[in-house]
Design a protein around this nucleic acid. Sequence first.
RNA 1: GCCCCCAUCGUCUAGGGGCCCAGGACGGGGCCCUCUCAAGGCCCAAACAGCGGUUCGAGUCCGCUUGGGGGCACCA
Length: 489
Amino acid sequence: MTPVRVRFAPSPTGRTHLASGRTALYNYLLARQTGGQFILRIEDTDQKRYVPGSEQELMDSLRWLGLEWDEGPDVGGPYAPYYQTGRREIYQQYARQLIEQGQAFYCFCTPDRLEKVRQAQQQRKETPHYDGFCRNLDPGEAARRVANGERHVVRFKMPKDGSITVRDRLRGDITVENAMLDDSVLIKSDGLAVYHLAAMVDDQLMGITHVFRGSEWLSTFPLHGHIIRAFGWTPPEFVHLSILLKPSGKGKMSKRDTAAAMQDGHSIYIKDLRDLGYTPEGVVNWIALMGWSYDDAAEFFTMPDLIEKFSIEHLNPSPAAINFTKLDYFNGLHIRALPVDELARRIQPYLPEGDLATLQKIAPIIRERLVTLDDAPQWAGFFFRETVTPSVADLTPKGMTPAEGAAVARKCLSIIESLPNVSHETAEPPLRALVEETGLSAGQVFGILRVAVTGQTVSPPLFESMAIIGKEKVVERVRQAIGLLEQLG
RNA sequence: GCCCCCAUCGUCUAGGGGCCCAGGACGGGGCCCUCUCAAGGCCCAAACAGCGGUUCGAGUCCGCUUGGGGGCACCA
């Protein structure tokens, strides 16, 4: 495939969502696969909705996912500026061209009048649309009014009859009657272009070959086709991605669903996912498969895999429900796939007391237990605490009294004290022999030791854990446990 | 209301006329492994929305119905 030029063009109006991450990902994959360029363009033409900080979160989120752009606001590029507010004269120039061609017109209607027109139309059960009040004004007079500083917008002069056919890569040709289309605003009264004009102009000027965008753009797609045609340009390939539904698959995520996901330790925002201990590898694998698939079996993918295997043909146009359980699964998969020293580095922020050398010993025994990196403290916190504080109830195995438990613990203690060290090889055989001798189950004997040493009933494997903690500390903790049991028994 | 899009197990999906009494994965159930919890292995339940066509033959093509979604702004 020839190198593509693709762009991800979000508006800085809120948090960076999963769906944005997915759109950006597909753009990135196609760019890397074909040796093309991935461009980040900020569509900030609606200054009323601008949310400070959203742009920073956006860039942080993309970079965290590993989606580095080749051209964009902070890295520059041959088509700068990459902020649309920096390109207002460009859009005005193209709008003027359309006016001169008779395919756009100045409109002086006030918001007030438009609102009244809309209401009247709705009362008559008509589809709201611009009534054409300024459509046929004398061009000379309109120009004079503009020169006089009269407040105005520029509207597209939609043909009254005929139809237009636009092509989506996933859905094929889409034909719409022009009569169904409106004289949409191209330039607002503040002089800035709206999306419909700005995006088409920028895509053309920036040499964009493929446009991935959400399917919410499908309804305005015919308008975009008209604009492109009016300028005589060759349209890029359009790929409208399916929308993401709430986990139940019934409707899109609502405020309530978003809150529920947070309650559950999940989130639809990329940055939150990072904070919750998800890995970029897991998140990328997960979102890649929401609307795309490779074949009837493969599903574990790293970024290099995806770059190699991604294809537009395997994109699915139907909506996909967000499945957080599957994110947990993929995250676990990728955590386990991480090299030990890398995993040690990744969990260090969650275990600030832990030194890297010890974390490298711990990583292999907790890796298959981690769903998120954030789980590390519950599995490995006891390695780094001075003392553990088990409860007598936990220390006493089912069907035994605390006194009986203490007796078993004493036997364990004397065995451990007699050992040169508590490696798996040295500690397990004599302790297994003890199990035989007492006639208890391995679970009962090792259970006492586990709680004594780790302070918890659920832990990484006992012998591996003891080996890491070291004989001295193990002895100390078992003694303490015996004290607890005898005191109460 | 009008316009557009979508439709295979609960969920993500494979399938692009015979290879499908529909395959994989998550989740669920069972078994195995086992010092706890996981991970892993094996097995089970679970779907072509409905109705009409086209065809020797339809999950796959066409139409309608139903359901879901998006849009109808001087927002993107």
